[in-house]
Design a protein around this nucleic acid. Structure first.
Lengths: 234, 234
DNA sequence: ATAAAAAACGAACGCTCGCTCTTTTTTTGG
DNA sequence: CCAAAAAAAGAGCGAGCGTTCGTTTTTTAT
């Protein structure tokens, strides 16, 4: 299906980052190819350049005032593009949100596929959780936007967004269940899965709490994984 | 200060609910008295009736489309009020969000005060967490709105909203620290406090995940508290 | 070098927004 | 029951929104 770009197994954030192939230019190139019908520009070179400007500006404005309150004229001022340029690129305002949803979907599906390739469920769980934690940090504005602006999406895309989160929890839950020989002794797998997902989300939803120490993200990951294993086995 | 309306100590959600004095009418009555300068109507009877209509409609529309996208004409259609009636009540659109912030603040301060009255830190922690979990479920639309629409508030009120969350974490952290005789053995108090707060928020932020079983909220509370104590002592 | 194609420009359009204000209706207190 | 006060009504206003489109500039291919 999609070509895999998330590293197979990486213990530290630094290792993960090296193997992470969704750097800005590659991501925009993929989004251009996947969303031809939403994008008016036909030559990739120009599309990527404009998309980059538009999304950077969006991610600067939206956390402060919200997507609905961001006018296209705000966007022109921030990007330096003209009305025509912006509309040739994205065709309408909603498409900004739709493309963000597509980007997050793309990355999340990749993470799940990578984890599913691991035969050992404990390893798979580690790959999945670290993959999600690290990816959502490297693409923080995208994940943040989708979480807070799901309601700005057209109905059908809102559903997609909710299903995306649901499928993440389900996959985590499935792995935890496989690790629990005697489920009645520990917490319900669902509870643990929910807990770990909210812990990951905490990091990309409240960036102001975690501004400084990028090193501690590894600690954070270990704390989360430790918590899971204690909750499973006791 | 404020008269306390949150039950002192309640093990189950059902018990808590009985002692919870922020039912709709009382809450609107309090909000009317606390926000005289934002509300144009002078007679409480009419104010409460209109506020009830306005907030019910707001909480129906906003989760679907967001506050900014909700027009006053949407609100008229949903409430059955006229433009004049709505503006006499709330004087301007922003005030809807400001009053929600005031309501959540009111309840949260009450919870913290109740917890602080408990001398035993373990009991205080239970009161605090259950108080927050149960209150935010009983007033789910209010808590949900404040979380997702903080960016729609005027600047000074945005600060209030963030400080409110901060003070909650701080209080939980303080209690956890008191329970940790040997902090180096368990997880950092900050990590545990963050975890439990996100677990509470999970319930009121994603109601679509927890529609059916209101009974399991007690289980959920026990799981959260169990998790904390295990994380503290080992 | 040049013609065709693609991209960029930005004034202008129709529409909807939050809000005001005059008029009408309802409520209140003597 | 009636006059004064309060509340409700809703047409109308100007500002600003997302979007369009005729024109100009840049890029591409010959």
């Amino acid at each position: 299906m999609t070509d895999e770009c998330v590293p197979l197994r990486a213990l530290t954030f630094a290792d993960f980052k090296k193997g992470f192939a969704y750097d800005e230019d590659r991501l925009y190139s993929l989004l251009f190819k996947r969303n031809q019908e939403l994008i008016g520009i036909r030559r990739e070179k120009f599309a990527v350049r404009n998309l980059k400007k538009i999304f950077r500006a969006t991610f600067k404005l939206v956390p402060k005032i919200g997507f609905q309150a961001m006018s296209l004229r705000d966007l022109l001022a921030e990007t330096g593009l003209s009305m025509g340029g912006v509309y040739l690129t994205i065709t309408n305002k909603d498409n900004i949100a739709i493309i963000v949803k597509d980007a997050v979907t793309l990355v999340c599906e990749d993470i799940v596929e990578t984890a599913k390739a691991e035969p050992d469920p404990a390893v798979a769980l580690e790959v999945l959780i670290k993959g999600y934690l690290y990816s959502s940090l490297l693409l923080q504005p995208w994940f943040y936007f989708l979480y807070f602006e799901t309601r700005s999406l057209p109905q059908e895309h809102q559903k997609d967004s909710k299903n995306l989160e649901r499928s993440q929890v389900t996959e985590i839950e499935r792995l935890i269940s496989r690790l629990q020989e005697k489920p009645e002794r520990g917490y319900p797998a669902e509870f643990i899965a929910t807990m770990v997902l909210t812990m990951v989300q905490e990091r990309y939803l409240k960036p102001w709490k975690y501004k400084l120490p990028a090193a501690t993200i590894d600690e954070y990951a270990e704390n989360c994984l430790g918590l899971i294993h204690r909750s499973i086995h006791h």
